[in-house]
């Protein structure tokens, strides 16, 4: 299956365009974190004042902490629950599967304000004070559907017989799950987790109506600004830098290590 050079050129060209499109506004956000004035459309000169302003803004810094904390917990819980449920659903009777998936779609479909007020009414009627816990529960609630939606298509492609065969050969269900099913759907689980994390990270309306007193996430900070504060651009730049560093550590270092091991193996051989 050798590819023609022109196709490779075309495909990489296309991917470069897509990435440019996706990163263009990010560059813009980063650029304006160094702007001298408050303007979002006119670059008047280089300055680090918004980084300084960010460092002195305890509400803004606290908002990073809440955003990350909530996103990490919500992603962890919703990935585990979503994966287990999706696998269970794929083996369920069709009527149950359809019903659950239909209800599962509701949070994706409902406008945030409806989900938010619905949850707030739920907490009020259960006599639960809004807090960090209610905020996390709400995030788990709207994250799980995204995980399930991402994993289900992959499960539909799976060959049922493989898991059955594993069970027939004496594997217990747990082994069939972890040794047979999970390895096959692993990329979908990862994608689901990433989407869940992004949804949680960027949510404003639902967070606003379910968070307890004194809890603000980054989105709440951004939406409530009566006056635009480019400190938020500085904060976003910080996020981009940190995540890029993590990406490099996760992806590049193993690659280098692999190359090294290959080289030593070659030497030894």
């Amino acid at each position: 299956m050798r590819k023609k050079k022109s196709t490779t050129f075309l495909t990489s060209g296309y991917m470069v365009l897509i990435l440019l499109f996706i990163y263009l506004p990010i560059f813009y956000v980063v650029l304006f974190s160094f702007n001298e004035s408050k303007s979002l459309t006119k670059f008047t000169g280089f300055s680090l004042r918004w980084y300084e302003s960010m460092m002195n803004d305890s509400t803004m810094l606290e908002s990073i902490w809440y955003t990350v904390l909530v996103a990490v917990i919500a992603t962890a819980v919703s990935t585990v629950v979503g994966t287990i449920t999706a696998i269970g659903l794929s083996k369920s009777r069709r009527i149950i599967r359809t019903a659950v998936l239909e209800i599962n779609n509701l949070p994706v479909m409902n406008p945030d304000i409806v989900t938010a007020i619905g949850l707030m009414l739920l907490f009020i009627s259960a006599n639960v004070q809004l807090s960090l816990t209610t905020l996390i529960l709400s995030h788990i609630m709207f994250c799980i559907p995204y995980v399930i939606l991402t994993i289900m298509p992959k499960l539909r492609q799976l060959d049922d017989n493989v898991a059955e065969a594993a069970l027939d050969l004496g594997a217990n269900p747990w082994q069939a799950l972890t040794k047979v099913i999970l390895p096959q759907i692993y990329p979908a689980v990862l994608s689901g987790a990433l989407i869940a994390f992004s949804m949680s990270f960027d949510d404003f309306v639902i967070s606003f109506f379910t968070a307890g007193v004194g809890i603000n996430n980054i989105s709440m900070y951004v939406y409530s600004m009566k006056r635009y504060n480019p400190g938020i651009n500085a904060l976003s730049t910080l996020i981009v830098v940190v995540v890029t560093l993590i990406l490099i550590t996760v992806n590049v270092i193993p690659a280098i290590r692999d190359k090294k091991t290959k080289r030593t193996e070659a030497k030894n051989a």
Partner: peptide, 25 residues
């Protein structure tokens, strides 16, 4: 995996901020 991560990273920047950026662009 790298590409999927690259595609998700921009989703962690606030939507309103990115939309303001688009407005400027």
């Amino acid at each position: 995996t790298m590409m999927v991560l690259l595609l998700t990273l921009p989703m962690w920047i606030n939507m309103l901020l990115k939309t303001y950026a688009w407005r400027g662009i």
